[in-house]
Design a protein around this nucleic acid. Structure first.
Length: 510
RNA sequence: GCCGCGGUAGUAUAGCCCGGUCAAGUAUGCGGGCCUUUCGAGCCCGUGACCCGGGUUCAAAUCCCGGCCGCGGCACCA
């Protein structure tokens, strides 16, 4: 027994060592003299597994180089990506749960005056102009690689227009501030990109600043300015931002700033799950009653995975295995489950849950009978005891039917022969030990003592469906803590959602 | 319009930048065995892959060219 435990311990040690991969060094660290990274989510929804990649890697690198790490909420679009008030707090909770701590925190919507200041300076330097073209008009000029008529007006006029913009003289779509780039740039999306646009915050109030501002910076402007003022040295972000580096560098050029090092990361998909925030939001609006909240276990958000019983170490390990690469990755659920199983196994209590319960009474057992079962076969997680006075148990109907006339072992209890007598299911005691059961070649099945059973629900995720299974669980399920990860014998891992009034478990994986 | 990425076992991927140590690693899956509180975990054994065609080279999964297939991003979202 001890040698086996030793074996297990050694084996586990070896595995973790093998898994601990060195991350590649960040570029040009010596030129900056320090490292500071950031994670910059949009609080328009909860973060998902795909966001965990830049978040975790940025944080790990910051700690690895004993540098700084910044959390920045990018909430500069109250119209299309309207921030959700509770998202700010829930994102913080998700990050902490993932083991991420930050040294500084900023909210972009509270930094508007700074953006306005930089915009004014850019106009003064001739690097930006107020454009009064319609979107279509501008598109036409751009496709012909021609300057729009507003581009080369005198700076004084630009400043006046800019002030008017801020004061609210223009409606949505009537004016934008553009960064002067290169009219001949091969990528039209780079040409004179929009730095600020008008958003009617009476119609679309911002959850932080209400209707106070009507001119809002775009992502590229706000991120560029913030990365500079926050002293960010290394940006790890999704590959979809590659072009944005080109756009933002024009601001850095005008202002004489030094652009941080950029590492582009590929997107992460989770097989069988919806990660897209907009898709999830769409589903939630379209079918409001069908989901268990923003963190419904069918989604790929961090909160959903947590609710499903996935541990933070599992997510860290899965993300680290993907490495620092610009290629997209699809994570298979089987692998997530395998990693989670390995981590959860030694700390999860074993409990029995019988679906499609069939009552079977045992003949030949001496009553009362006390049975004590450890919660874990090898780890010390305590035990539960049941005193049975009537000898009746629940077993799965299927188990009874598949073993009629045969000997089975009720796990950690006794060996019985299943019989059917005048339509009634009975079980005859034939022995007590595992050795005897093995001599019979008896399958080991799970069971629940009738007197110590409680009706419980188990929710099983099947793609976008949620199968609700009702069954009988051991009464000790009521003593568990909600949030606890347990293992249902022969079924798999599950997370305790709540224990009252009817215990509810969410199935994680086999 | 413009920019970019990928094609390695059933599946998901590592390796490719700096060619040999790759008769290709890991996980999962699958098959068999051991173990026994499980149809789980663990342990042992086994299974199985470099998109196609050229080129460079003593040597190519790795470099170059072409092809085929698949995918993504940007343009008053972030």
């Amino acid at each position: 027994m001890r040698s086996k435990a030793e074996e297990l311990g050694l084996a586990e040690e070896r595995r973790t060592v093998e898994r601990r991969r060195e991350l590649p060094p960040l570029p040009n660290v010596d030129k900056w003299g320090y490292v500071k990274t950031r994670f910059a989510p949009n609080p328009d929804f909860l973060i998902h597994l795909g966001n965990a990649r830049p978040a975790l890697l940025s944080h790990i690198y910051a700690r690895m180089y004993k540098g700084g790490f910044v959390l920045r909420f990018e909430d500069t679009d109250p119209r299309i990506k309207t921030p959700i008030p509770e998202a700010y707090q829930r994102i913080r909770e998700d990050l902490r749960w993932l083991g991420i701590s930050w040294d500084e925190e900023y909210v972009q919507s509270m930094r508007m005056e700074l953006y306005y200041d930089v915009a004014r300076k850019l106009i003064e330097k001739g690097g930006a102009y107020v454009d009064l073209c319609t979107a279509e008009e501008f598109r036409k000029f751009r496709s012909e690689r021609r300057a729009c008529p507003h581009r080369d007006r005198p700076i004084e006029e630009q400043l006046e227009l800019w002030d008017k913009m801020i004061e609210g003289h223009f409606g949505e779509g009537e004016a934008v501030l553009r960064i002067k780039t290169d009219l001949a740039h091969p990528d039209p999306s780079v040409i004179d990109w929009v730095a600020f646009r008008v958003i009617d915050t009476d119609k679309h109030p911002h959850p932080v600043t209400g209707s106070r501002y009507v001119v809002w910076p775009t992502y590229n402007f706000a991120a560029a300015v913030d990365d500079h003022f926050m002293g960010i040295t290394h940006i790890l972000r999704g590959r979809e931002h590659a072009v944005n580096t080109v756009k933002q560098s024009f601001i850095y050029m005008y202002m004489g700033w030094r652009y941080p090092e950029v590492v582009n990361l590929g997107r992460v998909n989770l097989e069988g799950f919806i990660l897209s925030k907009s898709r999830i939001k769409e589903l939630l609006t379209k079918y409001p009653g069908r989901f268990l909240g923003l963190d419904d276990p069918r989604f790929g958000t961090i909160a959903s995975l947590r609710r499903r019983g996935i541990l933070p170490d599992t997510i860290r390990e899965v993300i680290l295995e993907l490495g620092v690469k610009s290629s997209d990755a699809t994570v298979s659920w089987d692998n997530v489950a395998a990693v989670n199983r390995r981590i959860a196994d030694s700390r999860s209590k074993r409990l029995m849950f019988v679906k499609e319960p069939l009552e079977v009474c045992i003949e030949g057992i001496e009553l009362p009978f006390k049975v004590s079962i450890p919660y874990h076969p090898s780890a010390d997680l305590g035990e539960r005891s049941y005193v049975m006075t009537n000898g009746c148990v629940y077993v799965e109907k299927r188990d009874f039917e598949n073993n009629k006339g045969q000997v089975v072992r009720l796990m950690s209890f006794i060996n019985v022969r299943f019989e059917e007598r005048s339509g009634r299911a009975v079980a005859k005691l034939v022995g007590y030990t595992v050795d005897e059961a093995r001599r019979y070649g008896a399958p080991i099945i799970h069971w629940v003592p009738k007197e110590h059973s409680v009706r419980a629900r188990l929710y099983v995720v099947e793609g976008l469906r949620l199968r609700r299974v009702v069954g009988m669980a051991e009464s000790s399920v009521k003593e568990l803590n909600s949030g606890e990860i347990i293992q249902l014998v022969r079924l798999g891992f599950a997370r305790v959602e709540r224990t009252k009034p009817v215990p509810l478990l969410i199935y994680a994986h086999p």
